[in-house]
């Protein structure tokens, strides 16, 4: 019984690795003994990449509009060469894609303003980063919000400072209770 279980676990592990690891690692892997056709694995891998692409497009609509038809190619290049795993994997994947864009050779974004694309993507993923990054990013976001509110309230300069400080203190208290999402 234990042998059976170990065998099944090993099979599942090999499949999981093949579906999630980068194409370079995947090429080094031996064929999996209990699988009839490699094409089935490749199809599953392709389905997973499509799912990742679709989620990235959903989270980065402005970047997609800016990059246009290059977006799919870019994301596929990232997805093929980067391992996919972890809790909250699908959001983390998009964050990793954005980081990957920043270190990617600029020439690859032919004809596009690479810096602008990266900035757009970073801005669009700010809300996911807020959930996972340290406090300062949340604070940065909140900082902008209270300045905007103070502007619209047209408070005198002195009161405005007090008002901002008060809001920040209140925010720091509330952040212990729940994260911004």
């Amino acid at each position: 019984m234990d042998n059976e279980r170990e065998e099944l676990e090993q099979l599942q592990y090999e499949i999981a690795r093949r579906l999630t690891q980068s194409i370079d690692e995947s090429n080094e892997t031996q064929k999996i003994a209990y699988i009839k056709q490699e094409s089935g694995l490749m199809r599953s891998r392709e389905t997973l990449i499509r799912k990742r692409l679709s989620h990235a497009k959903h989270l980065l609509p402005v970047t997609v509009a800016q990059v246009g038809s290059h977006f799919n190619e870019l994301f596929r290049e990232f997805a093929e060469r980067n391992h996919f795993n972890g809790k909250d994997a699908i959001n983390q994947d998009v964050l990793r894609f954005v980081r990957w864009l920043t270190i990617r050779p600029v020439a690859a974004l032919d004809g596009l303003n690479a810096e602008m694309v990266v900035q757009l993507a970073e801005r669009e993923t700010m809300h996911i980063a807020c959930k996972t990054r340290p406090f300062y990013i949340r604070f940065h976001r909140f900082d902008w919000e209270i300045v905007r509110q103070a502007d619209s309230a047209t408070l005198p300069k002195k009161r405005r400072t007090y008002w901002c400080v008060f809001k920040i203190i209140r925010y720091q208290r509330s952040v212990r209770l729940w994260p911004i999402g």
Binding site: A16, L48, G86
Partner: peptide
Amino acid sequence: RVRGIDIGHLTALPKTRAA
């Protein structure tokens, strides 16, 4: 999910007694 790898995709099981 297996051994800490989260596939992010529902994968069919082998249709065996062990599974």
